[in-house]
Design a protein around this nucleic acid. Structure first.
Lengths: 227, 227
DNA sequence: CGGCATCCGGGAAGATACTG
DNA sequence: CAGTATCTTCCCGGATGCCG
């Protein structure tokens, strides 16, 4: 017997007309923004979200998905047969939240306490390319780079001073990185040479190795604050 | 007798190299971002923060200030005598968080559930001008507008396609608004005519009334999502 | 009065087990 | 696979009280 608690819509909220405060009412609960991050590059199912968000528990994920659906940030959708699988997908407005991740990421990357060697999801790595690409450095560049990151494959296109990422098979890219996201992050952001990562088997490169050497120079972490 | 809990630094965190996740580790707790918002236009003391954040309790404010200080977002500072009063002030890096409020605010303003008639702090109103000013509309505009919002006075300068806000006495501005922040928000964002607000005493205008009529046209809320 | 520390009740988050 | 049920832990919010 479940108590009819639903009629009480007085959940904890800030009661503040400030847009930022309302944003926090919508997506300020723990894990909510990270769930959105994992959906930012396309729909996923429940168990994919669980796998990509280490540490979230099933009931919290359920609650967040319910809350985000009620807020109009995402919808549950049933894929057409034969897959007939249920997925969660951001609404158009949900996809418009990407700048939130970019400014949060750029700001926090300057934190003295930021540790870029922690685990990293595939989506985070792809979004980081869109966030950290230096526009002057990629001016005039056109390239297609593929990523095989375990369950998920991506195609990253650099063109017209911007970086696009889509979940697609990267078979005919100019260059393909294969490995876990943290290894690729070490190469791109940590300055670790490819040879070292290939030697211990955590990274494979196929295709234009010179493009790979240029690729890692296009993404620069902002300097630490107080430096 | 205080238990040595401090040695346990394993507070709830996401353990994620993603910059956005680290930002949430730093400022994702309830009220943390709103505390930063209230400091965004200059230092304040404990009781000012409490007054400007209706609903926060003293111990939570204490915890947030400790956490934000530990994170390097703000510092406690003692004003020089004779005031000798302790204030909390953002660090340079803390001030760099302003884009977070802008993207959160712009995104959430499109939420179907956003209610702009809720209470609003003076800081929120001033920051909203910086967030919502439409660059083409203020191109070529140079103006100085004062605001008397109860305890706090501000001077807003519109120039060079941007909007500056500072806590200063607005005595010799071209135009001065006097009233509570929600009334001014009603005029700027709600399209409520000045005369209606002046009639019930919630707003006073001094100076260039024609400038006031132009002023409210420079700030436009984005359209609701799904419209 | 400003800046906390302490205690308490309610509720959200976390871990585990269980079900269709 | 996609959640639900249950239990525990911890955070949040409110009240009170201490101390400069």
């Amino acid at each position: 017997m479940k108590l009819e608690k639903a009629t009480n819509s007085a959940k904890r909220c800030y009661d503040d007309a400030c847009g930022a405060a309302h944003a926090l009412d919508l997506v300020g609960e723990r894990w909510a923004l990270l769930v959105m991050r994992e959906l930012m590059l396309g729909p996923k199912r429940f168990s994919d979200l669980r796998a990509d968000l280490p540490g979230i528990s099933a009931n919290v994920l359920t609650q967040r998905l319910e809350g985000l659906e009620a807020a109009g940030v995402l919808v549950r959708r049933k894929l057409p047969p034969p897959s007939s699988v249920q997925v969660y997908e951001l609404t158009d407005w949900g996809y418009e939240a990407e700048p939130i991740f970019q400014v949060l990421g750029r700001w926090a990357a300057r934190s003295p306490g930021h540790d870029p060697t922690l685990p990293l999801s595939a989506n985070s790595l792809m979004l980081s390319f869109r966030t950290m690409a230096d526009p002057p450095l990629i001016a005039g560049v056109t390239a297609t780079i593929g990523f095989r990151l375990g369950r998920e494959n991506f195609l990253v296109r650099v063109e017209e001073r911007e970086v696009l990422a889509e979940r697609t098979d990267p078979a005919n890219a100019d260059l393909i990185f294969t490995g876990p996201p943290p290894a690729i992050a070490a190469a791109v952001y940590g300055g670790v040479p490819f040879e070292a990562l290939e030697a211990d088997g955590s990274l494979q490169l196929e295709g234009d190795r010179d493009l790979a050497r240029r690729f890692v120079t296009w993404f620069v972490l902002p300097p630490k604050a107080g430096a």
